[in-house]
Write a protein that binds this DNA or RNA. Sequence first.
DNA 1: CCAAAAGTGTTCCCTCTACACCCATGC
DNA 2: GCATGGGTGTAGAGGGAACACTTTTGG
Lengths: 238, 238
Amino acid sequence: MLNLKKIVVLKNNLAHFNSVFSVDCVIFGFDEGELKILLIERNTVPYINWWALPGNLINQNETLDASANRILYELTGVKDVLMEQYFTFDGVKRHPQGRILTVAYYAILRLSTHKTLKPVTDFAKDAAWINVKELPKLAFDHQQIVEKGLEKIKNQIKNQPIAFELLPEKFTLTQIQQVYELILDKKLDKRNFRKKILNFNILKELDEKQEGVSFRAATLYKFDKRKYTQFFGKGISF
Amino acid sequence: MLNLKKIVVLKNNLAHFNSVFSVDCVIFGFDEGELKILLIERNTVPYINWWALPGNLINQNETLDASANRILYELTGVKDVLMEQYFTFDGVKRHPQGRILTVAYYAILRLSTHKTLKPVTDFAKDAAWINVKELPKLAFDHQQIVEKGLEKIKNQIKNQPIAFELLPEKFTLTQIQQVYELILDKKLDKRNFRKKILNFNILKELDEKQEGVSFRAATLYKFDKRKYTQFFGKGISF
DNA sequence: CCAAAAGTGTTCCCTCTACACCCATGC
DNA sequence: GCATGGGTGTAGAGGGAACACTTTTGG
């Protein structure tokens, strides 16, 4: 039980100990020609029944990175994602319950390997991949967090070949171009794009072709990790 | 006084309410051909008498940005600096007193206008500008925070003309080049540098010359804010 | 006249850009 | 045979990198 001494200590520190930390995750995926993000439908107040980013309070003795992974898993069933922190949002008026500071994480992943989503706690009612261009109204300041995340990957895709992490193992050049166009939000010239991306020598042409299309089948490519490693750091710009 | 109800509420929330937020500031300045950062000498345990970044706990009802400004002022006497958040450090084992999460801020400023430093609280014993290349051992994980800050401005100087914020109002081309060389940590070709920087059309050549030097006096330049604004966003690369 | 830094052009190469038509395939 | 996307080349412009000597000034 609480003894008086403890209470006094608590009270003295109160000014500094009534902030709460949380983590929100912006997870990007690419599917059917669309850039999507992973959202949950909240099952708790406040904002019950609203769509929101997977996010929750962090635990004690848990690093931020570990929190992000745990929370993402609990709310969506998605596991083992390498996320990166990109901004800390200042929540003086952010949460009706009081002050919350939120560290925002993002990641980019192969949507095809994470199609089935299943929240493992009842904090979330449901989870789904939603087209970035058709987002519903989001809880809290999640709209803003998503926007900043989009900016972030826009900058990153110009400097690191992250596009491949969105694609299936084997992909066509047109698919990569689509990813770039979606993220940069502009049309790119097909010939110039292909020249450029092939010049980096980080792709391996396969003997296979696309299947099941009703037009000329495109050659499939694979991402060459060994060359990528050499390449890393140089950067690409479009 | 505390009533029982309040205590219970406190206790229930305890798991989430015993993290503490702090802010650390990495302030860059340029002087006498050296890139310096602003450090304080701590006057409190832990790490009493150690050099450290200006940093402290944030207050309730204070935005992160406001905290950073207040803390910088209290510990160094430096006021009204536009700082930018760049990373949140995860302090599970960071502080002997318990868990602390630290939001790191950086700024770049004209050292000449902030030469006199004077802590206004006795949390800091002293404050000083220290050459980045000759840093003492720093308290906590401040070494790491500084390194990440250096990376940050390295990336930024390639894309935004932040160098001017380090220089006095009137400066020579050689001085800007020095700033670039210090931050990028490599030698640049004089002719190419001058061509490039002048081509951006963000400098205004003055009728004045350098004074008090025992060699040919260099032309002074001024930063042209109007042209800068048009220019902003295009980026520079070296 | 010497030391110290200021100031100044050219060439080569590579990369970016703009641009349009034929090819293979499934239906 | 037609609709659909796959696949290809070239010319011109602009920017980056490499490179060395003359000028000005104070002491």
